[in-house]
Amino acid sequence: MSRRTAQPPVVWDGPGSPGSPGSPDGAAADRPRAIRGALGPADRAFRVLAGGSGSAVLAIMLLVGGFLAYQASRALDVAGFSFLTTAEWNPDSGRFGIAAVLTGTCLIGLVAVSCALPLALGTALYISEYAPRRIRSTLISLVDLMAAVPSVVYGLWGFFFFQTHVVGLARWISTYFSWIPLFEVDGADPRDPLATATVYTSSTFIAGLVVALMVTPIACSVMREAFSQAPSGEREGALALGSTRWGMIRAVVLPYGRGGIIGGTMLGLGRALGETIAVYMIISPVFEIQPHLLQNGTNSVSSLIALRYGSSSPEGISALMAAGLALFVLTLVVNFIASSITARSRAGAGAEA
């Protein structure tokens, strides 16, 4: 009788092995295998540097918010909740609030985003889908260069050149759309050829158009990045089924980049809400709730701070800090929402299968 030698057990990790997805007990063991490796000195240094940088950004943001809250506590104790509902600005007499400047800030941001969205969307689509490859990098550089132009240059250009050329457009809008409350102009007859044009200058509309040109590069960059990540397989599949280029863009690129469009627009809105110098040089400051976009006179939180900081008393400085705190919270919320939407769009959220 022959004697068999003992054989070592065979370990099989394939589909039929115990604990694999194809075995009876595979459902319990169907989980990713944890891979652990020793980190080298370079990996440890990078992890510490990245974690420290992120923590430093959060710490600086918390310190800025804490500083503004501490400096604004004196004014907020005096004004209370009326700080959000009062349009007057007389900190020395105890009558002050941001109702007027906050309304102007939101209206300027609304005009800027309404004009920047179609401009940024069209530019991003042209660069990513229609522009010849040999000039694509040049167009990207030119668009990004717009973001490097200082705010004061935009302000000077808007005040001395752009404003005189857009007054006619403001008069035309007021002539045919004054039945809409936002486009109404008090004390002016747009059909009177002898009426003065100064009633249409230094308005929310003009300031919003200038700010729109400043936020367009930011929104365009986010949208273009989202469009460029649309899967090539779905692009080619749509074209192979007989779709036109615009049909492919409408069925594949735009749904895939929907999150990027929303995120880029909100990032631009956050930039528009905090713009200071360009708006300060164009508008005519008024401390009343002025909802008419085409009419002379408006205000914003950032312009208020730039206008009153140098000549304010200690009570006025505290009130300005309270206004800055409100703007800080508003822009922080907008940018957090935009960042979350943009992060989800990178994975193709919203794309149709």
Rank of each mutant, 00 (worst) to 15 (best):
M61G: 13
F227P: 10
F177Q: 01
V215G: 03
G51A: 06
F205S: 01
W179M: 04
L320G: 09
L84P: 07
M266Q: 03
H292R: 15
D13V: 01
S232R: 15
F162P: 04
S151D: 00
F160Y: 15
D186V: 13
R47T: 11
A219W: 03
D92N: 13
R171Q: 12
A349G: 11
V167S: 03
V152P: 01
T342W: 07
W179R: 05
D189M: 07
F205K: 04
G54A: 07
G297Y: 11
S232M: 08
L293A: 11
V10G: 08
S55N: 14
A34W: 09
G26T: 00
S23H: 14
M281S: 01
I289D: 06
G350I: 02
L107P: 12
I249E: 10
P314N: 03
W172C: 00
L213T: 09
R134N: 12
S17V: 02
V329L: 13
R271S: 06
G16C: 04
R224K: 15
D189S: 15
A207E: 01
V329G: 02
R47L: 14
P193I: 05
A351N: 03
S345M: 08
L139V: 05
S151L: 01
G158V: 08
I262E: 04
T85C: 12
S137Y: 07
L76K: 15
A338E: 07
S300V: 05
R171E: 07
M281Y: 02
L145M: 13
G37T: 10
G237E: 01
T138H: 11
D77G: 10
P150R: 10
F336V: 15
G122V: 01
L107Y: 10
T216K: 02
E88S: 13
A278L: 08
Y176C: 00
L121D: 00
M146E: 07
P181G: 05
V166Y: 11
S2A: 12
V111Q: 02
L327S: 04
V149P: 00
T175G: 09
R346T: 05
P9R: 06
V301L: 15
A69P: 13
P15D: 02
L304W: 08
S93L: 14
F159I: 06
V252E: 01
P181H: 12
G310E: 06
S300M: 03
